Structure formats: structure tokens, C-alpha cells
Amino acid sequence: MSSSTERATDGHGRTTGSVLSGLAVAVGCVLFLGGFVWGALLYRPYTVPTDSMTPTIAAGARVLAEKVGGSEIRRGDVVVFKDDTWGDLPMVKRVVGIGGDKVACCTKQGLLTVNGTPVEEPYLQGHGPAAPVGFRATVPADQLFLLGDHRSASLDSRVHLTDGDHGSVPRSAVAARVDARAWPLGSLGMLQRPGSFAALPGGTSQPGPLRPLVLAVVAGAVLILGGAAYGPLARRKGRGRG
């Protein structure tokens, strides 16, 4: 009996396998291209030029940041922003205070306090203290108080404490929220949301849709490759039977 009669066919003479492989390629293209397009609409890559966010983000690292409005920003978020008082280029810092907060440093244990509540910051370079020199500030309404994770090297809100806004920047200055490190490969991964600020009113933000987007792209690539490989494999198997 020939191999053609051993395989089920549809009304057009196509085998079940070829139909399924075509469907797999079609679904894969939707997932692959859809994931890329959706990601391009929601995310933007940035390069961090300094070591002010070490060890969370090294100097020269590439990050992926979700384009969000300033109203969505919570304490603990790492944001990309631009403020004329700070310079002409986008900067990357961590939000430690929002409008109305009283931010101060340091406790006897070297911790930052927000509205009198000590905040553990495990992401700090050398794991603390929260700052080499003490400071305090009240954050104006609709403003954000920003610090780098490498407190001894970062030029942040502490440098601008004598400004009219007590070192803070408007929420409207925020362009995006960092979700992941994309380069170098050794640091590739999602940026963890710190639990240190969860006990404060407003809590912390949730990660963006980057993880499901990546899964969609990977699943799409697998389906495309698997579906495309079916034809050659089926023909090779058919020749083997012959």
C-alpha cells in the first residue's frame, strides 16, 4: 500500500498533518508579530549612561521601559524622566516619595523613612546606609522624590533640595517605568518590585505586560519553526517508506 493512502486527507488532497502545520504557522505568525507590534507600542529601550543605579542597573546597560503616565507611578518604581532643572537628557532613578510625603534620612540603623516609617532598601549598593549624609524633604503635591540606588555616587533629588520643589520633579516629567534589563545578557531579566513600600498608602505598582509579550513571541517562533519543519520531515518520512 502506498504512503499516500496511509494518511488521512481532506477534500483537497491535503493530509491532516499538512493542515495542522499550516494552522500552526498561521497562529505562530499572529503571536510572533502581534507580540512584537504590541511590545513596540508599549515599551521603549533606554541606555543608562552612569552607575547611579548600580547594582540594580549597571552603567551602559539597556533597559526596557513601559510608556506610562505619571499618575500611574508608585513608590519603589524605577522611572525614566526628563526635567530641565536636572539636565537635557533622560535620567533613570527610583521613586521613594510622592506628593505629601515627608522623606528623611537616616535612622540609627541607616534607613530611609517615609512619613516616619523606616523603609528597608535591599537594592542599595553595598546594602546601605540609605545615604552617606542625612537629609529631609517634604514632597509637594503631584511631585516625585527620586534617588539612585548607588547613593554615594548618584546625583538625585538630594542635590536639588534647595530648589523650589525641594528636589522633586513633576509627575508629568515621567516618560516611562523600567520593567526589565535587556543588556548585557548576564543581567537579562525582569526588574523586581520592592516590597519595602508595600505597607505605605498606595502600595507598589504591578509589573507591565512584558512577560506575557515575551512568552507570546517565543511561542509564536516555536509554532512557526515547528509548522515549517513538518513539510520536509513528512517528505523525508515518505521517501523512507518508499
Rank of each mutant, 00 (worst) to 15 (best):
G134I: 04
R136K: 15
T9Y: 04
A198F: 04
N115F: 06
H166C: 02
A131S: 15
A175E: 13
G28F: 08
Q206I: 03
T117Y: 03
G34C: 09
K108A: 14
D142W: 02
S187R: 15
Q109G: 11
L111K: 15
G76H: 13
G34M: 01
T54P: 03
P209S: 10
A131G: 10
I98T: 15
Q206R: 14
G167T: 10
L213G: 00
T5N: 11
T56D: 01
V103P: 14
K93M: 10
G238A: 14
G238I: 03
V159S: 09
P45N: 04
T16A: 12
G128A: 01
A153F: 13
E120M: 09
S18M: 13
V30Q: 08
V37W: 11
W183Y: 12
G189C: 02
G97N: 05
R236E: 12
G126K: 10
V218W: 14
L144Y: 13
K67R: 15
G22I: 02
M1Y: 10
L89Y: 08
E72P: 03
T204R: 07
V95R: 12
H166F: 04
F135Y: 15
L147C: 04
C29W: 10
L112I: 08
P194R: 07
V159I: 07
A61N: 00
L188N: 05
S187G: 02
G220D: 06
I57A: 01
V63Q: 00
G110V: 14
V222W: 10
T113V: 12
R151M: 02
G70E: 00
P140S: 08
A228G: 13
V27K: 06
S52D: 09
R151G: 09
A229Q: 00
L223W: 06
A180F: 01
P90W: 07
P209V: 03
G99L: 06
S3K: 05
V48P: 13
G76V: 10
V25Y: 09
P132M: 05
A130R: 09
P49V: 01
R211N: 05
L111Y: 08
R151L: 03
V95L: 10
Y123E: 09
V218D: 03
G39S: 11
P209T: 10
S18I: 09
R151N: 00
A229S: 15
P207E: 06
F36V: 14
P212M: 12
C29S: 15
K67M: 11
R235N: 04
Y123S: 14
L23N: 07
A176Y: 01
E6A: 14
G87I: 08
P170E: 05
G203S: 05
I57Y: 01
G134N: 12
